[in-house]
Design a protein around this nucleic acid. Sequence first.
DNA 1: CTAGCACCTCAAGTATACTTGAGGTAAAGT
DNA 2: ACTTTACCTCAAGTATACTTGAGGTGCTAG
Lengths: 138, 138
Amino acid sequence: MNTYTIAEVSKKYDLPISTLRYYEEIGLLPHVARNGKNRLYDQANLDRLAAICCFKDTGMTLKELQTLFKYEDQDHDLDEVIDLLQTHCNRVADQLVLLKENQRHIRRKLQYYTDIWSAQVNHQPHPDWDDYPLSRFE
Amino acid sequence: MNTYTIAEVSKKYDLPISTLRYYEEIGLLPHVARNGKNRLYDQANLDRLAAICCFKDTGMTLKELQTLFKYEDQDHDLDEVIDLLQTHCNRVADQLVLLKENQRHIRRKLQYYTDIWSAQVNHQPHPDWDDYPLSRFE
DNA sequence: CTAGCACCTCAAGTATACTTGAGGTAAAGT
DNA sequence: ACTTTACCTCAAGTATACTTGAGGTGCTAG
């Protein structure tokens, strides 16, 4: 089966080498094979790493990830894994709603400032914040 | 005009009192009025706080927020504010794409584990991960 | 009048998630 | 033979974003 050096994995997942070693050290990325002292990552390792990135990027802490994988790796307490996943799934749904909402605010602000800039350049009157309802930025 | 005590603001924005003081200390939340020693927040303060939360929740660092508001407060370098907002706007768009993608992965995993659980309860065969294509979770 | 609550300051401490540095090995290129 | 490259370990250091604690003020309720 195909294996990868730590440098290759680092590039593939855009994570520093030190981070890969760190994840292994804290038990998130177990069973990394060795060629002498050098790490060799296989597909299972990469899959785990992809999962780590996915959960981490959606706001799960490393501690929670440890819990999640501890259950997974030991193949028991399925209820608790499901519970954690369900909770996280809900959090992600909330994040999505909030992110979209915040995006509207940011776009509004950007549009407003951009219009101020244009107005200055063209010697036009300064735009009015009240003319920028959130609904315009959906 | 209406004003609010620090405790009220803390509740309204679900931020610890210590955090409100901290934001003020690092200059993110300037011009907070005082009644003797006690802080009194007005609408402008709340608007600023809402902006802080919005940007912070979308991944802007406090340092970037300081930059953003420094420009805003001093009413110059409009280009740089716009640049920062534009950059952030793009980051948020990327986040949204990534978050949706990650959500699919998480939902898939949750569904898979839930089905394992059901299978165990009903003494049915164990589900197969290959039957859970990402496309099922859009 | 005194007790308690809500607030204050300022310095020091903490959690999370890494990163850096010192010192070393092992194989490949020149 | 030597040196560069690519790794390694282990302990200590760092950045970010707060939090906590000690010690104090000032109004209000009993």
